[in-house]
Design a protein around this nucleic acid. Structure first.
Length: 568
RNA sequence: CGGGACGUAGCGCAGUUUGGUAGCGCGCAGCGUUCGGGACGCUGAGGUCGCGGGUUCAAAUCCCGCCGUCCCGACCA
């Protein structure tokens, strides 16, 4: 390909509307252009990179036995109502009506299409398992599209659906996809981690997220400093502390005027907040529930909700305190009746002689101890994760990492096949719902994630696998016939050797070509110029390291191929 | 949906406070000189100042309404 013929408009200045590196650089380097919030046109360079990602995905999917199909994007709304996702997605679904006033949606994923599809033509267990996939545009009317391709309203996704006769088969299909996904992200050159994720509201089964590390990522995960533990922030279960043992102080009441908050209390008494015991009140399915955590920690409502699911959790409002006889700001667990459920975080075992509320205004108690002074009904993990918590494997310090979710796989079970009536005939002659799995990869998101991970002040630094072109032949003196001829020769020879090569044959000064080459981020640059030719050489540059070298003109093509082989 | 900012030439911005001929840089076109890290000179094209209404002799500028874009938050496979 000739750059003089390629629609690859680069921008010298940063676009005003782009903040994060991937958005800024994909715009500047001419990979994408905005159409409206969260919707982009993919330009030739962007399309080439996108196709390379797709190719890797297709190769690994095909190799794992999945079959490519293509499903429609415009879909009837009814199946979505049947599975409950019409309501669940709510305004995030693009909805439209046709001329007959039929309700339609644009697909945000396609379980509702895939399940009936397989049920329609594949009634026997003998035909299972089956795994179908597609690469298609997905539509979600995000509350707040942002970060360019990272959270768009239209995005390219590979989605796959597996169908098995039983749980065991589903787990095997899932394992195969898990391994295929690892290969996909490795081949894309991404620095990624896999974490077992939070089971969502629907689905509810085992699921894993494949996360590309990125400082701008919206998704958080927890990892051990020693690299032996990874988890979703909501699923992280830090190591419980050593029990602190029996209390040594008698419990006494003290006057603490105007100290309804931990902060005020700790300041008044001149102690660390961690010496106090926080007692947060919730209504759980109508029952008053006290949750105990050290004063310097926060209760994770999300974790509490999971503990008591399906019961509903509601934080106490002012009226609840009065109506049920609690004193807001001065609640302590001493003397609670059996009607109050007392849940304590494991961290509470690590302390003794607590300072906590006295259940009377402007008074607290000191020396409160578990067992002797108050009871605990359930010991659970209910604190919000905090950096520095102990790793459950080796006790190392846990920290939070930010990432971009580029893949997500689910064991769905019969959550979709059952409500949709997607059944097969099993060996015993009875009809059963398929046991399904679903597997997504964000193709367009990988492109952005890769740029987040690989860029510098000059521009993008593509890996060989995803670069729109592997090599650019940069003609430094376009007005010099000898220079042009040598550039063309090297370009031609590289193409014949199967290298994905581009020649910058534009009538521009060398400086512009250098700047564009660094911005677009081809892994290898070959500079053919008058200066070199007079000495019988060309210059090579490896974009990833900035390392420059030169090669004999006659040997240039082989030198480029060798350098490319060493490129990341 | 709550909070904030912005909208002036293809891109980046000034001008709005204090109403009075619409500007700068880059890019683009022509000519000439340059030619290995975003060259230089001359000439030139390019504008419903986001849209609608209002105030005024006069609105990019003041007032009202709307639309769009981005950022923070809430939400989320």
């Amino acid at each position: 390909m000739r750059l003089s013929c390629l629609f690859a408009p680069t921008l010298r200045e940063d676009p005003a509307d782009a903040e994060i590196p991937s958005h800024r650089l994909l715009l500047r380097a001419g990979f994408i252009r905005p159409v409206m919030a969260g919707v982009y046109t993919t330009l030739p360079l962007g399309l080439r990179t996108m196709r390379k990602i797709e190719r890797i995905v297709r190769e690994e999917m095909d190799a794992s036995g999945a079959q490519e199909i293509r499903m429609p994007i415009v879909l009837p709304a009814d199946p979505w109502k049947a599975t409950g996702r019409y309501e669940l997605y709510g305004d995030v679904m693009f909805k439209l009506t046709d001329r007959h006033d039929r309700e339609l949606v644009l697909g945000p994923t396609q379980e509702e299409v895939a399940a009936p599809l397989i049920a329609g033509d594949l009634p026997s267990y003998r035909d299972l398992p089956i795994n179908v996939y597609q690469v298609e545009w997905k539509y979600r009317d995000e509350f707040r599209p942002r970060f360019g391709l990272l959270r768009g309203r239209e995005f390219l996704m590979k989605d796959a659906y597996s169908f098995d006769r039983d749980e065991e088969g589903m787990r095997e299909s899932y394992r195969i996809m898990y391994e295929a996904y690892e290969r996909v992200f490795e081949r894309c050159g991404l620095d990624f981690v896999v974490v077992e994720a939070d089971p969502g509201q629907i689905g509810g089964g085992v699921n894993h997220e494949f996360m590309a590390r990125a400082s701008v990522g919206e998704d958080l995960f927890v990892e051990c400093e020693n690299g032996d533990y990874l988890a979703d922030t909501e699923a992280a279960r830090p190591m419980a502390p050593e029990p602190a043992g029996e209390g040594t102080e008698p419990m006494v009441e003290v006057d603490t005027p105007d100290t309804p908050t931990i902060e005020a209390l700790a300041a008044f008494l001149g102690v660390e907040p961690s010496r106090t015991l926080k007692c947060v009140m919730f209504d759980v399915a109508g029952r008053s529930t006290a949750v105990l955590v050290p004063g310097d920690r926060e209760v994770s409502v999300n974790k509490l909700e999971k503990l008591v699911f399906p019961a509903k959790v509601r934080v106490f409002e002012d009226g609840d305190f009065e109506a049920r006889g609690f004193v807001k700001g001065y609640v302590g667990p001493q003397g609670f009746g059996e009607d109050v459920l007392v849940v304590a975080d494991h961290l509470v075992r690590g302390g003794r002689d607590w300072i906590t509320g006295s259940n009377a205004r402007d008074r607290h108690v000191r020396g409160a101890n578990v067992g002797r002074d108050f009871r605990v009904d359930r010991w659970e993990d209910v604190v919000e994760f905090r950096e520095g918590d102990r790793c459950p494997v080796d006790g190392g310090s846990l920290r939070i990492g930010r990432s971009i979710v580029v893949g997500h796989i689910y064991q769905l079970g019969t959550n979709y096949s059952a409500p949709l009536g997607a059944r097969f005939v099993d060996e015993d002659g009875t009809e059963k719902p398929y046991v399904m799995g679903s597997y997504g990869i964000g193709i367009s998101r990988i492109m952005a994630a890769a740029v987040e991970q690989r860029h510098d002040d000059l521009g993008i630094v593509w890996s060989k696998a995803l670069a729109p072109f592997e090599v650019v032949v940069l003609v430094a003196n376009q007005d010099d016939e000898r220079v042009c001829a040598e550039g063309e020769r090297i370009y031609r020879e590289l193409g014949q050797m199967g290298v994905d090569v581009l020649i910058d044959d534009r009538e521009l000064t060398a400086g512009v070509k250098f700047a564009d080459a660094d911005l677009i981020g081809y892994p290898v640059q070959v500079v053919v110029g008058r200066r070199g030719i007079e000495q019988g050489s060309v210059d090579l540059k490896l974009r990833a390291t900035g390392e420059r070298s030169s090669a004999a003109l006659v040997d240039a093509t082989r030198a480029v191929v060798d350098l490319l082989a060493s490129a990341p």
